[in-house]
Every structure is written in structure tokens, then in C-alpha cells.
Design a protein around this nucleic acid. Structure first.
Lengths: 319, 319
DNA sequence: CTGAAAGCGCTTACAG
DNA sequence: CTGAAAGCGCTTACAG
């Protein structure tokens, strides 16, 4: 790899002048600019980003933390983040926090900082109060918490409403399958569901299920199949398992009960029946996260959380 | 962020000594080592990786190129790569080449090199002969080509054989749905299928289908549904679309025809019938790619391609 | 408009 | 075992 010195020597100027040219400084005569640019092209000189970073403390690199790439939801968020970063000339340093424990997060942030990243995009987690991060940071997949962290929040309130409206007033008892309420996003959505049902005077059952075993979770729900005519599942995978379990029990969907998933996984199109669900627009979540981070990096602060709209998708598991 | 100078001053030694200690050099007295280590812990000093990289030309960063994160297959490969890199203390700089055109690839490689990455893991593409890469490079999702590129190759020969054996000698005419044969991996697999069928004296039909429209591809295949009793689909998504199209035409699987996918997508478990398929072990592909790259970086060369075993998965779309 | 010099935070010969 | 110095490849005041 050739360096700025090589260019300077070949063009017969100082390295300072070359530096001015590759940084688009206006204080260069057109003649020398032309001369130097020709040499740059000729030897295909690429400035060493590492040296630049060392001086400028700007790496044009963003650190990203994701819980799990096997989950399409997160994969699409990354996709959205990248689509923005690439356009703006930023690179992405990506880490996976398989079990999403806090220690892992802090380690990753440390690693990022060693590499002088300009900002961090991470799934929501509790930032220890002691950690006073100078690095701009955005959290996605977060609940709508009002602190001074920039949060990208799926509109869980509307998500709950949309689920209920997908039921088309055809439900008389609703089973809400959910993950533990200590998860803030779960709480937001369940509260919204409960609110809506109360408004409509429709009774409901809350069923907390395991976080890692959708098959068992389906059994837990269908044990009580005589007590509801609609199920709102944790997400699409959980809904798909409920379909399988219903087949085993010879229950028809939506005739015996309507079923609603969450996330609009590709899967929804291929089950029988296809699954009505809520699209969280993960790509848009990612894009929004990236835009907000770049804003923060460029000094544009805004204390508001970004609320991302959700879209109900009607398929054959509801009327 | 504190620097090596801060540590040196606080510990009353030179920066050279501090450097020796953070690099585990043996030539340091236990007393000074202890003294310095205490300071390091006290002020939570983290060496600046960027400065280290500038001097050493080793960044402990790997550049990774993926065609598409929305495809679970690639997402799992990344997962495998990361699991190894993280263990070895490497970071991953990731780029997405949405349309996988060659120019994109070369741009990404350029970007990587500006950041002094130590090596590259990329999906297979034609390296221009002019490009003489000094950087270690490994290609995954590649055909078994014999040049001096380190390639990670799915065992497409066995993949073809496994498809045929999933049919359990119950097929008399086989429809092979495939992408264009100009794709080397496609060619490998189709050749293997044809070989096997010839050996067994089973007639077959080759049907080339669109690369982007699985639904249309399903229609193209089922137009000829009276002419076969087994379909080997491009992959699991294509197989799932064939199931949907068969439902529309009131055809039963496997009674009217057996069906085989490829990739072992989660989807396979949730269709009716569930889909028999071939698992390419994408996580293992990723792990192998990472291991081979680290070997290359550490000077352990091997001209052989790594062949990754595939695993047939029997479900209900075959007998 | 241009160049010599200092400095970003490290590492590593070199000398002692 | 330890430190002063040079250097990795850049950028940016400073002086002219």
C-alpha cells in the first residue's frame, strides 16, 4: 500500500499539500491539485483510515450490538442500519450478545471504544448509572422510557390495538400468551391489549409462557382450549407452534379460535392457515436508529424517543 | 480515555515499560509490573487499538462480506464466523452486497483495507486476475474450484445423493427445479442429482426457474404436474411455494408427488406437510471459514478447499 | 498557496 | 530491567 509520502514525492509537493487535497481543503491552487490528483489516481493511493482516526478521533466506524442473528427480526434491523451507514460512508463493527447479559454488553462497548468507534447502536439494556458514556448511543427494541438515552421504540400501544381490531369483534374470550411482564416491551403490549379488551368488555386470560420453548408454550395454551375463541400469541413462531398443536388436537383455525402472531415473519405466509400478524417494520427501525445516531454524532440532539409505526396484516388465521 | 502516558506518569515509569507490561513482555521486574498493573486497573486504562494498529499493521479486525442478511442461511454463517472470532479476540467489520455485483465486492475490500483489516471472509465471487490481494482471504458458499483461493464448499455432490435417497426408491419420474446452471454451486448439485438418477435409471425433467420469484417458479413446475411424482425444489422457500400451489390445485403431497427442499430453513417445520430437506450446516460453514482465515493470518497455509458435510432431514413431504 | 514541524497513542530497536 | 528516541501514516496550527 502506498502512503501519503509516496504521493508527495511523486508529485513533488509536501505531505501537507497532499493531505489538504484528499481532505478537500479549499486553500490549494488548481494546478497543484490537478498534479497531485493525477498521481493519486495513478498509484491508486488510498488514505490510511487508521492513521486518520488516530489523529482525528473519528473512525467513521459504528459499533452495533445484536442479541441474535438467527432471529430474522434482528437481521432485518441490521439490514436497515447498514443501508444508511453505507450511504453515509460509515462502516459497521458488529458484535453478538447471544445471551444478552449485561456483562457482555459492557465488554462489547469496551471493545468498540478501543477501536475508537464514533457511536453505538445496541438493543435495549439497562445502562449502569456508573457508566458515563461519552460515545453517542442509540437503543433499538426498547420500551418507551423517558430518560436521556435515544430510544427507538416500536409502537406497542398501537400494536395491541391492532391485534384486537384484527379480531373483527368476533371474539368473546381472548387468550393472551405472553412472555414475562418484567420485560418492558412485553408489558407495554399486554397493557394495551388489556385496555382494549376492557373497553370492549371482552373477558381475557393471561398466560405467561416460557421464553425459549414455543412448542411447550403452545401446549400450555391449548390445554385450556375450551375457554377461549381467540389467541394472541407471543410472536409468529409461537403462533405457528399453536397451529401445529391445534392440528394434533383436531381444532380448526379460525373456526374454533382465531389466532394472531407478531412480527410478520416469512413463515406466516406458509402455514395453514396463514397467520394474521403485526409488522414492526424492522428495517425502518434499523434505518431510524442509524439516522438518529448520525444526528447525535453530528451534534444534533433530540431528547424524544422515535416511535416506529406497526402495521396489522390480515391473513387466514382470523376472520 | 486515559492513555499510556497517564499510566506511566502515575506509576513513575516510562511509557516503554508500560507498553512492555500490556504486551506481556517477559523483561519486566515483578515489582514494576505489579505497580503498573495496579495503576492500570485503578484508572481502567484500555490500550488504544487504533494506535497499536498503526504501528503493528495488525488490527485484529476481520472484514466480512455477505450477500443478504434477510436470508437465514447467510445470517447463520455470520453467526458461525462470529462465534470463532469473538473467542479469539477479533472484531468483525461487516458489509452487505445486496446485489452481489463484482464492483461492490471490490469497493468493500478497498474499504476494509483502508481500515487495515487482517483478513477477509466473503461469499464466492470471481476475483479479477489483476487484483493481487496481499490480505488473507477465504470464500464461503463456493463451488469446489481448484485455484489458490481458500474456499469453503458445501458438499453438493453428497447433497444431490441425499436428495435422491430421501425419495426412498418411490419415484418414477423426478422434476428437478433449479436456478441457472451458470452458477457453479447449482451446477454441482444438479450434476450430482442427474448422476444418481441415471444410475437408478429414473427419468427426470430439468426445469430452470426465475431467481427471484418462488411463487411463479412453483406455477412453472406444477403446470407439468401430470408428468412427475417427485419434485426437488431449488430450496425450502421454493418448496413451500410449491406446497401452496399444490393446495390450490388440490394435489396431495406426498401422495401425488414427493417434495424435497434445501437448506433446512425453520419454515420446513411449519408447513403442511413438513418439508424433507438437506441441511448445509451454515453455522459450521461460518466456523470453518473463520478458522481457516485465522490459520492463513497466522501463516498456516493449506491449498485444500474445506468441504462441509450436508445432512438429509426426513420430514412428511417424502415417504 | 505551501512546507516544516509537532503530535495523535502506541511499539520496538538501541543503549545502558 | 529500564528509558529516550524514532517511527507507524496521517492532520493541522504556524510561519512565510
Amino acid at each position: 500500500m502506498s502512503t501519503i509520502k509516496d504521493v508527495a514525492k511523486l508529485a513533488g509537493v509536501s505531505v501537507a499539500t497532499v493531505s489538504r487535497i484528499i481532505n478537500d481543503s479549499p486553500n490549494v491552487s488548481p494546478a497543484t491539485r490537478k498534479k497531485v490528483e493525477r498521481v493519486i489516481k495513478e498509484i491508486n493511493y488510498q488514505p490510511n483510515q487508521v492513521a486518520r482516526t488516530l489523529y482525528q478521533k473519528k473512525s467513521r466506524m459504528i459499533g452495533i450490538i445484536i442479541p441474535d442473528l438467527n432471529n430474522r427480526f434482528y437481521a432485518q434491523i441490521i439490514d436497515g442500519i447498514q443501508s444508511i451507514l453505507q450511504k453515509k460512508g460509515y462502516s459497521a463493527l458488529i458484535s453478538f450478545s447471544a445471551n444478552s447479559n449485561k456483562k457482555n454488553y459492557l465488554n462489547f462497548i469496551n471493545e468498540f471504544q478501543k477501536n475508537n468507534i464514533d457511536g453505538i447502536i445496541t438493543a435495549a439494556f439497562d445502562l449502569p448509572a456508573t457508566l458515563n458514556l461519552a460515545t453517542p448511543l442509540v437503543m433499538y427494541d426498547s420500551a418507551n422510557i423517558d430518560d436521556n438515552v435515544a430510544r427507538i421504540v416500536s409502537d406497542n400501544i398501537k400494536g395491541g390495538k391492532d391485534c384486537i381490531s384484527l379480531l373483527q369483534n368476533q371474539a368473546t374470550r381472548v387468550m393472551i400468551q405472553h412472555w414475562p411482564l418484567r420485560l418492558p416491551t412485553v408489558r407495554e403490549r399486554v397493557e394495551s391489549l388489556v385496555n382494549e379488551l376492557n373497553k370492549l368488555n371482552i373477558p381475557y386470560i393471561l398466560k405467561k409462557v416460557s421464553e425459549n420453548d414455543p412448542e411447550k408454550a403452545a401446549q400450555e395454551v391449548l390445554k385450556k382450549s375450551n375457554r377461549f375463541d381467540a389467541v394472541i400469541a407471543v410472536n409468529d413462531i409461537y403462533a405457528a407452534e399453536i397451529i401445529k398443536e391445534a392440528q394434533r388436537r383436531n381444532l380448526k383455525i379460525p373456526a374454533d379460535f382465531q389466532l394472531i402472531g407478531y412480527d410478520n415473519n416469512v413463515l406466516c405466509e406458509y402455514t395453514t392457515p396463514t397467520i394474521s400478524t403485526i409488522d414492526q417494520q424492522p428495517k425502518l427501525i434499523g434505518q431510524t436508529a442509524a439516522r438518529r445516531l448520525l444526528d447525535l454524532i453530528n451534534g444534533k440532539k433530540s431528547s424524544q424517543n422515535s416511535i416506529i409505526n406497526v402495521i396489522p396484516i390480515k391473513r387466514n388465521s382470523t376472520y
